[in-house]
Write a protein that binds this DNA or RNA. Structure first.
Lengths: 192, 192
DNA sequence: CTTGTTGGTCAACGCTTGTTGGCAAATATA
DNA sequence: TATATTTGCCAACAAGCGTTGACCAACAAG
């Protein structure tokens, strides 16, 4: 019997696992939790549905594996305070357009408890610290992060999920120009 | 045979129909489209699932009937321009907390095409004109409406759907104080 | 009273879902 | 070469879904 050492070499099934994860991310992003069926995901990955169960236990486990997310915030301390809003909004747009996981988490989080929790913890653990490191009083960093998140998530909702035409038609630069001052104020202005 | 005159009197079944609609709104708001099953809605309404089919045709028709929505915007022309942002945000919070349909449309619209279309048309037809009647150049009213909607929907998402703690804990007055300047700017400031 | 319409329940249909266990081939180990 | 282990497919399960049609009781019209 082959023991499962901590430093196990690459398995032959790694490609299959990766294909499953990729298909899962796309389906979750496009359809949400319920309509992203294991059968459809397996079909996209070109394998049998039972393989999904073997490698990820159940649908819940598959989503947990497929929704691992790193927002990859740049180091904001290294640039002038005045531009923080624009950089943050631009970074958010980049991440959103380059990674299905963000749309997936938003679509799933709206109807699935595990998805909502995932979104909450990502915002709290990844956006929170960035905000705490720059706003006037670190004590209200969570509130400021929530405000900034509400604006950026709201734009993602209108633009990438609901596809509200005026929001879709805006150029990247227009979105940044309009949203940057808002985010900037949420993060740095003194409480109203 | 009793003809169905345009001005038909109140039927004995009106109470049942209303109970179905109420249960449907609650379920759609709480669970989204897929998990809000006709069986569960019928159980909540205290009747048989087949009644839902008789009165609303199918699940799609039930959602269409249950998601009729009037945002009830006040006449904004009658008050000073400076306060428009605060009035609008306050009105949005009131409507959201007093009507399940808004949460239902948001939850359903994220994973269901009909729900998304409903949300788009409500925003376009009800928020659009209000904005068009006050912003500098009526030509970019749709874009301004989309911006304001992105902020208000984003806050609703964080506060009522995802229940992100800092967003939930803010008081109504705090939300208005922070969001009003944003919405005010989106509607009235000249394009950046 | 008789008759037709309405409001409602019940049992079932065909289908899809997540999930399971058995079995064959490919691969690794000895 | 002989033996385990891994990788994969297949067929099936129980449960839940939207939906349908037969049937019964209450009521209204003649």
């Amino acid at each position: 019997m082959k023991t499962d050492a901590p430093t196990a070499g690459p398995r032959r099934s790694d490609a299959t696992k990766a294909a499953i994860l990729e298909a899962a991310r796309e389906r979750f992003a496009a359809d949400g939790y319920e309509r992203a069926t294991i059968r459809a995901i397996a079909r996209d990955a070109g394998i049998d549905p039972s393989m999904v169960m073997r490698y990820y236990g159940n649908k819940e486990g598959l989503f947990a594996a497929a929704s691992e997310l790193d927002l990859r915030f740049p180091d904001l301390g290294a640039l002038p305070d005045k531009h923080i809003g624009a950089v943050l909004v631009g970074h958010f747009l980049d991440r959103w357009e380059g990674d299905d996981v963000l749309t997936a988490m938003l679509r799933v989080g709206v109807t699935n408890a595990a998805g909502a929790e995932r979104l909450r913890s990502v915002l709290g653990e990844q956006l929170g610290p960035v905000v705490a490191g720059m706003c006037p009083d670190p004590a209200d960093a969570p509130r400021r992060a929530a405000l900034a998140a509400s604006q950026m998530l709201g734009m993602a909702l209108a633009r990438y999920v609901l596809e509200f035409p005026p929001a879709v038609e805006m150029t990247r630069e227009e979105v940044i120009a309009w949203l940057a001052p808002t985010v900037q104020r949420y993060l740095t202005a003194e409480a109203p």
